[in-house]
Structure formats: C-alpha cells, structure tokens
Design a binder for these strands. Structure first.
Lengths: 207, 207
DNA sequence: CCCTGTGAACCAATTCACAGCT
DNA sequence: AGCTGTGAATTGGTTCACAGGG
C-alpha cells in the first residue's frame, strides 16, 4: 500500500459516487462487490476505481473483491460522514424552500438545521418544522452553533456579500447555487450548482 | 490558428463559465476584456483561457484583448445558444416546481416548455402558466414537439426507466437530478446535479 | 508596453498488464 | 480462475515563455 501524502482532488470527488453506488448495492442486500461491478454501475473503469481506493488503504480481497458494508464504512470515515453535518441555508426562495423540504439529506450525512432570509414575509414562517430566521441574526447564530457548511440560494447580486459574511461567521464550505463564481479565501471549499451551466455544456454536442 | 478536430470535453465544459462572466461584464457595459481579467473573475489562469478560446478561432486582438460583445457572440454560436432550447421537465415535486418557477432560463438559452408527472393531483394544474401533463402522454408530446433536452426530477427509483423513455422519444440530453448514475446509449448527453455528492466532496476537507 | 496565440515543457490522470494472494 | 494493488506506459491537460502584432 502506498498511502499518498496528498490525494488528488479529482479522486476525492469520485468517492461520493462510489459511496452512492455501494449504498444502493447494500439496499439490495448485496454483501460483496468488485471494481468491475462498481465500474459498470458508475460508467468508470475498474482500474480507476482500484487505483482511487488504493490511495486510502487496501480495502479489497484478492479473488473476492470488496465487502460492501466494510467499504461503505471506510468511505464514510474518509469523507467524515460518521456524524451528520449541520447546514445553514441562506435564501428561502422557491429553491431554498424545495431544499428544506427535501427528505434525502438525513441518511447521507447532512441536516439542514438553519434557514435565513431577509424578507419579513418569510421570517418566522415554518417549513417542515424549520423556522426561517432573520438574516441579520445569521452571523451570531452560525458562530454560536459552530456551523461549518452553508447552502447559498440567494439572488446572484447578493451572493458574494452573503458568502463573505458566512466565511466571517466561521463557515468553511459553501454550496453555491447562485450563477457566479465566488471569490473567497482559499481555505474555504466551494462547490457550484448551476443547471444552466450544465445545460449549456450539453448543447455544444446537440444537432 | 490551429482549430482542433476534436475539442476536449473539459474545455467545452469551461465555455459556459466564460460566457457567464462575459455576460456579467456586458451588464456593466464593459466593452473589452482580457484573458487576465476573465481569469481573475473565474479563478482560472489566463493562459488556460487563451488556449481554450484558441481552439475555436482567433477571437482576441494583441495588445487590446477581447471584445466582450464579439466573444459572447462567438461563444453563443459555439454552444448553439443562438435560439432558445425547449426543455421537458419530468417530475413535478418540490424541486420540479421550483425549476418551473425559476425566471433565469429565458435569457440564457432555454425555456421549460413542458412538464410531466404521474400524480393525478398535479396533472392539469398550472405553474407559472405551464400546465402539468400526464406522464403517459410524454413520449408522444416530446416526439411531436421535437424536444431534445429533458430535466429529470423524479424519485431515484423511477429515474432509469423514465430516462430510457425520454431517449426513446428522441431526447438526447438529460440533466439528471436523481441521485444515481444513468445507464444510457452513449449518443445521449447526461449531466448530473446532486447536492449531496457536492457536499460530501467538501466534507473530506473539513476539520 | 500590452496582450494574444502557440509550440515546448511540464505535470497530472488514466489505462495497461501482471505479480501475488484467495 | 478470479480479483486486487501497483509500477510502468500512455494519454491528456496545464503552464511556461516568447514571437509578433497593436
């Protein structure tokens, strides 16, 4: 085993997919799998899956493959998903609303535990039992609860400012739904979700 | 100029970001930009932007940089965004609902023009003027309207089957929000949006 | 002097292919 | 025989650095 000092980010980015596939196998009560099977499920080569996993340890058995529960355990450990992460959501528009109501976070390591908006009509209302709070209280609330992850679903014009406020309050990971690239200190992790970017990528290949 | 026969997908994937940055500059009435300025906005090296753009032609002027309107025009042409693309949305849950109500598609090349669901409670209702149709009519409606792009916001258990139905009806690009990898003919473009995958990527780096 | 476009150099990622264990 | 883990080979992507035009 050759545990590398620093794992390429592109490898880290594939681990959640591996975990997803494994959890689906587990739901079907599959006990053992192989790099070949995982690769077929995910459209990735078996060699790549083996190489990726080997960066973190020797998780498989020659001749047999990988134990599904064991590999899930290892990946949850590597990705720090052994306990749920609290998430602060900022911007309770249609999208923020839909995210709060989404039921799929809890069994995959996350819990949307705070929501903020600046609209007096929304502040104080309850969505799925979560009370929308005044965005003015956001820094204090995030700091006191030590929340490290935020989802940003505010209009583009406010995203950079709100992101900076989040970072000041102690957030170090932001999932940004606003259609712009944020400029933040490099210790802050940022991921982007923009359906139009994804669609425009595909239109290149159409017709 | 060395127009390559085949452009790497990773380059194509960056073009929408360039377009996004340029459109923001245009809103501020900026007439001219440089690879340096674009790179600063997007967190990408200037050399990479120049190399990417040079794959498609010589769009800049030495000493001056790039004309913002001209480069927008070229990118819209390359990405086939000169006319709006109709999109069929399948699965009108909270997320589908939020997508239909989202106002940002029209000025970036897309129009959600059909929505389907299998819930009798939802079929016939109107969201932002769009009538939710019975999913049983989906293949016929998509075929007749020649819709090529679909957004898939159904529960994971149905996603693979619905995706296959979409492809049979003529869809060749799918933006999949269901948390699994689809298995489809390779002429079909698929992009994935799964916030939990994005979050799990970031948690690796936390603490 | 400013900035593009681009070979060349460098660095990164993927695939190959096989030793070695079950 | 089946499958992992891994060096070596290969392929792909990014950065460098500079010629050349404005």
């Amino acid at each position: 085993m050759n545990r590398k000092l620093i794992i390429p980010d592109i490898v880290v980015g594939r681990l959640p997919r591996y975990l997803q596939a494994l959890q689906r196998l587990q739901k079907r009560a599959v006990q053992t799998t192989s790099s070949k099977e995982l690769g077929d499920i995910l459209g990735i080569s078996a060699a790549q899956i083996r190489k990726d996993l080997s960066q973190f340890g020797e998780f498989g058995k020659q001749g047999t493959g990988y134990s599904v529960p064991f590999l899930i355990d290892r990946l949850e450990d590597i990705l720090k998903l052994k306990h749920d992460w609290d998430i602060a959501l900022v911007g309770v528009g249609d999208l923020g609303h839909a995210i709060i109501r989404y039921q799929g976070f809890s069994n995959r390591g996350f819990c949307v535990s705070m929501a903020f908006d600046n609209d007096p009509e929304k502040i104080g209302t309850s969505i799925n039992g979560l009370i929308v709070e005044n965005i003015q209280n956001m820094p204090a609330r995030i700091q006191e609860a030590q929340v490290k992850i935020a989802m940003l679903t505010v209009p583009a014009a406010f995203a950079q400012q709100v992101a900076e406020d989040l970072v000041k309050a102690g957030v170090t990971a932001i999932l940004n739904y606003a259609p712009l690239v944020l400029s933040l200190p490099k210790h802050v992790q940022v991921e982007y979700i923009d359906p139009i970017i994804s669609l425009q990528h595909m239109t290149y290949y159409l017709e």
